[in-house]
């Protein structure tokens, strides 16, 4: 295919680029502005102040929710990627009808996120499916109350919700591997495990990084899952942001929290990528 090296491409790409660019930059700018303002009952006092940041940093609830959000998103990411890798491997190397498998894996992703979370609430609830099912089998006498409204419920639900997204990037990177490399490793005397650890796994690191970021970044700011199945122990930072923008009606503080969340997510994501790259170099 010939690429026309001309500038008409700039004009074609302009509308989408400007639209997305504007809706990234302008709202962020507004958030930054709000974070330096103050809420005075129904009005906004627009004199510059660091007060929101001071209040947010000294609030133990904020710190606790931020740390918990990052921690839980990290756990969800780890769990989801670990569970997804064998599936991606199976589809890329072993499955005969790849397209069918990929389709089957991606369909649940398109189904309303709200309903998928709702389904877990039905399963894990006090009078829910798991408890009533176990009870009717005679395995338990009293409903288990540790299933819903805690961190575990949030982690299970999120791992389920993000599963399809974890598989695709890893699948793509496995698919790209030149099969002759694997044969060469075998010919040179590598065992199955050695071949996987020294050839396959390193070649799929970009896919693993992509999967991790695709899951981690949105999960830190997830609102629906902690709100529906998290109870009071499983709340995350998004729930607090929503309270400030909603019932508490303190937008400046909400904006400050949004920005702090974004910076935390960015910092963790960047150090993660740097760490993995560094580790990769050290091994080689």
């Amino acid at each position: 295919m010939t690429l026309e090296s001309d500038r008409s491409g700039v004009f074609l790409a302009m509308p989408a680029t400007v639209y997305v660019g504007l809706l990234v930059a302008a709202p962020l700018g507004v958030l930054v502005m709000y974070s330096f303002w103050t809420q005075t009952y129904v009005d906004i006092d627009r004199t510059f102040t660091w007060e929101n940041y001071r209040a947010a940093f000294s609030d133990p609830l904020v710190r606790q929710l931020l740390v918990r959000s990052v921690w839980m998103a990290g756990l969800v990411t780890l769990l989801t990627v670990l569970l997804a890798y064998p599936i991606a491997y199976f589809v890329a190397f072993r499955a005969r009808r790849k397209m069918l498998w990929l389709l089957l894996i991606t369909i649940p992703f398109w189904i309303s996120y709200l309903l998928r979370v709702f389904a877990w609430k039905l399963i894990l609830g006090f009078n829910g499916l798991l408890n009533s099912g176990l009870a009717s089998l005679g395995l338990i006498n009293e409903p288990l109350d540790f299933l819903l409204y805690n961190e575990l419920a949030v982690i299970i639900t999120l791992a389920h919700a993000w599963a399809p997204f974890a598989i695709l990037p890893i699948y793509v990177s496995l698919q790209k591997i030149d099969r002759s490399l694997l044969e060469a490793a075998t010919d040179l005397g590598c065992g199955k495990l050695g071949r996987f650890l020294r050839v396959t796994l390193p070649l799929t690191v970009p896919g693993i990084i992509a999967s991790c970021l695709i899951i981690f970044i949105p999960t830190v700011g997830d609102y629906v899952t902690p709100a529906l199945v998290g109870g009071s122990d499983g709340k995350m930072v998004a729930n607090l942001i929503q309270v400030y923008f909603g019932s508490a009606n303190n937008w400046p503080l909400g904006a400050t929290l949004s920005l702090m969340t974004m910076v935390s997510v960015g910092a963790v994501a960047i150090s993660f990528v740097a760490l993995v790259r560094g580790a990769g170099k050290a091994i080689r």
């Binding site: 709202p27 507004v30 958030l31 709000y34 970021l213 949105p218 998004a238 929503q242 904006a255």
Partner: peptide, 20 residues
């Protein structure tokens, strides 16, 4: 840039857009 909306925490996008 055009792919960026896929990997942004929705709560931040939502609160920021409302403010804007």
């Amino acid at each position: 840039l055009v792919m960026l909306p896929l990997v942004t925490p929705v709560i931040i996008v939502a609160s920021a857009m409302l403010a804007l």
